[in-house]
Write a protein that binds this DNA or RNA. Structure first.
Lengths: 142, 142
DNA sequence: GGTGCTGACTTGATGCGTCAACTAACCGCG
DNA sequence: CGCGGTTAGTTGACGCATCAAGTCAGCACC
């Protein structure tokens, strides 16, 4: 039952901080981050969706919003017209760079600092094991 | 980062199961469960909200829906007209009883069975420590 | 070289959560 | 009493997620 509490409060708390300080959803943050660390700051939609653990549909909506804000642009791939590649704009990159430290800081505060190094190791093992049950077909990647 | 995956997939997976099998949100489930284990199957709104870790507003909306479905009834308290007490109906109770085993089973499958007893202990400790950071003013209750 | 199938998105409707505003009941105090 | 303040709860508007349906490009086979 402690787990239940964790499960529902931690994501909320992290999201609140991000939202408050940067006006970004965790998901949006992941999307921007995913783009920023890709070659050419670009990535195809399905790929991004997998990275951010979301459906293509969700990603599509989110990218549309991010596009309206001027953080990304979309265009069809040259070699295959079905594929859409999203690219992080300079504005988007700067925005991400501004938002990241605060977020990382919060995670550190809530999670890293609350635990001993030993517990961190345990937690990683535990998370990986559970994840394998919940979502087989995805090793402990990332 | 494994933690991030956990954090966002486990709740989702549990919710999906509940929703699919019973048409209940995790939050709705908590509300019904909270009522079922209270004296007279009744509880005042703010109390319930705290129990289910949600805002009063959210609870109000949810209870309205549950009331429409015939699972609970609301009425003002006799001694203090500001207070609303929600009561689980027989129909609601039976519905909960029907939904519970499947949910418990899923939790068991995803979490309990994935871990060793030792890890379960570690997880509880970890969860409590993090929770204390995130939401001070709430011990490891429940 | 059309016809049908699959893959990669996109869109629109619906539902839940949140925030801010509102109502109504109690409390204390002159 | 009656008046301000507080507490408990409700409501409405808005945003994001999800699901089902739709679009449109490639591919494969005749």
């Amino acid at each position: 039952m402690s787990l239940a509490g964790l499960m529902f409060k931690l994501p909320g708390a992290l999201d609140v901080q991000l939202q408050r300080d940067s006006g970004l959803t965790h998901f949006e943050y992941l999307v921007l981050a995913g783009l920023s660390e890709s070659p050419g700051r670009s990535r195809r939609m399905s790929d991004l969706a997998g990275f951010a653990n979301g459906s293509l549909s969700r990603l599509s909506h989110v990218v549309k919003r991010l596009e309206r804000r001027g953080f990304v642009v979309r265009r069809p791939a040259e070699d295959d017209g079905r594929i859409t590649v999203a690219t992080l704009t300079d504005a988007g990159y700067e925005f991400l760079v501004a938002a990241a430290p605060g977020h990382v800081q919060t995670v550190r505060e809530y999670v890293i600092d609350a635990l001993t190094p030993e517990q961190l190791g345990q937690l990683k093992a535990i998370a990986d094991q559970i994840l394998q049950r919940v979502d087989p077909g995805k090793p402990c990647s990332e």
